[in-house]
Computed example of a mutant assay.
Amino acid sequence: MSHKSAWKAEKLGYTNVKVFAAGFPAWKKTGSYYAVETSYVKNVIDSLKPVVIVDARPTRPAYVKGHLPGAISIPYNKFDEFKGILPIDKNIPLIFYCGGYT
């Protein structure tokens, strides 16, 4: 799918297009960041496995107005100030969300 997506991007005029040919599983193994679908987040929440979901939007009004169940608020511009509330166990997955991708 990566090659097809890159080809479509080039057809739209993008010139700095790169493909990670080894695919998503290999990308994850590198420890690189990646985006996930909302269905993935729901499955993680429903599984009751340890996970920390971080709402990176401003606390007021966004987090206060509504957030994912169990999410903690660490606004992106206050990350250094609040990073101490993240789990000590570095194997616990962290899922960050904001107002970016729909």
Rank of each mutant, 00 (worst) to 15 (best):
P61S: 11
S2G: 13
P69S: 08
K18I: 10
K83E: 05
K28E: 11
V51W: 05
F79D: 04
S39F: 01
G23H: 12
K42L: 06
D46G: 06
I85M: 05
K4V: 15
D55A: 00
K83S: 05
K78N: 03
K83P: 02
M1C: 09
N43G: 11
K83M: 08
Y76E: 08
V44P: 00
I88S: 15
I92M: 01
A21M: 06
P61T: 12
K8V: 02
Y101G: 09
L94I: 07
Y40A: 09
D55P: 03
Y76W: 09
T30A: 12
N91Y: 12
I85P: 00
N77T: 09
F24L: 14
F96N: 04
P87H: 06
H67W: 07
G13S: 13
L48K: 10
S73A: 04
V51M: 01
G100F: 05
I95M: 02
T102Q: 08
W7S: 15
P93H: 07
L94A: 02
K42D: 05
L68C: 07
K29V: 13
V19P: 03
I95V: 09
D46K: 08
A6D: 12
Y76V: 00
K11Y: 14
R57H: 09
Y33N: 12
I85F: 01
P25A: 06
D55T: 02
D46F: 05
G99D: 12
A21T: 03
D89F: 02
P87Y: 07
G13H: 13
M1E: 09
T59P: 00
S47F: 08
K29L: 10
A71W: 02
A21W: 03
P75K: 06
F24P: 10
V36L: 07
I53N: 04
